[in-house]
Every structure is written in structure tokens, then in C-alpha cells.
Simulated scan of single mutants.
Amino acid sequence: MNPRRKKRLTLVLALVVGLGATVGLLLYALNQNMDLFYTPTELVQGKPDGTKPQVGQRLRIGGMVVEGSVVRDPQSLQVSFDVADVGPAVTIKYDGILPDLFREGQGIVAQGVLVDSRTIEAHEVLAKHDEEYMPPEVAEAMQKSHAPLQYSDEQLQGSTQQ
């Protein structure tokens, strides 16, 4: 093998090893930052494939706030509430200002860490609005674009004669 081919081979091998290391580090970083989504039932009973989150695992949970379960600390911003779907309820503890749309009976998504099998220490709470909500600007635009068409008598007679 001549020196020129040897140099090319070394360069190609270094490039492949560098690219492999970059992809490996990227996958490792993405795996560390991945938050899995669970419903309260899946959190307690496990997913259909049998996986259950471990204590200390970061996750997202979504469900409806149980009526009468919101407990606020009068001395701080700490709040505790239960979230349920069709099965068991899960307690979420949050220290911060809740979104304006947050209320009992409303759907929420919380991001946090699993403290025990039925308690989550949330660092973010997102309130979901119902699917019928529409911003006023969009409602106005739809009304304008879907206004009923007005035809004159001449246009109507002309279309029936054709």
C-alpha cells in the first residue's frame, strides 16, 4: 500500500470513528432528556407492555383534576391536587403559579419527577382548554369567510334557465 492510499484510509477511518462517536453521544443525550407520557391508570398499573416508571424518573402525566382535591398552602405557592382518568387518582404537588385555565374538572398535563408510586413532584403544569375553544380573531375570520352568499333575483333566474 502506497503512502497516499494509507493516508486516505486513515482519514476515512478517523471520519467514521468521529461520526460514530457523535451519533452515540447524541443518542445518549436524547435518552437522558426524554420524558415519557403516562395517564394516571398507566402510572399505577403500568403500560400495556408491562413497563412502569421508576421512583425518581422524569415523566409527564395527563388527566382531569378531581373535583374537591385542590389543596393550597395559605403561606406559600404550594398546591396539591389529584388527577384521574378512568381509573385510580394520582397526587400532584406543585410549587408555583398555576395557569389561568387551571380549575377542578379541567384537563391538565404536568411534568415532573415520580416521588412514590402515586405522587409526582411537578415543575410545570399546563392546563388544557376544551376542544370547542376558538380565539376571537379566528372566530371573526371564519364568520367573514363563511358569510352566506347573497344573490339577486336576476342571478337566480339566470341560473335556473341554464
Rank of each mutant, 00 (worst) to 15 (best):
K52P: 01
T22D: 01
Q155G: 00
S159G: 00
D130L: 03
S80A: 14
D35C: 00
M64N: 08
K128W: 11
G112C: 06
T51Y: 14
D73W: 07
D35W: 07
P74N: 06
Q143G: 06
A139N: 04
M64P: 00
E67K: 11
K93C: 02
D82F: 02
A147N: 02
A139G: 00
Q45L: 15
D130P: 00
Y28C: 06
L30Q: 14
K7N: 09
M142G: 00
L98E: 09
N31I: 04
S69Q: 03
R103G: 10
S76H: 07
A14K: 06
S80F: 03
Q143K: 12
V16E: 01
D130S: 12
L15I: 12
Q150W: 03
D153H: 05
Q143D: 13
V90G: 06
L11N: 12
A147G: 04
G24T: 13
L19A: 14
T10H: 06
G50H: 04
V138K: 10
F81P: 08
L9C: 01
E137Q: 11
L101K: 13
A21I: 13
L15H: 02
V23M: 04
T41D: 07
E140N: 10
V23R: 02
E121V: 04
L25I: 08
Q111T: 08
G18F: 07
A127M: 07
E137M: 01
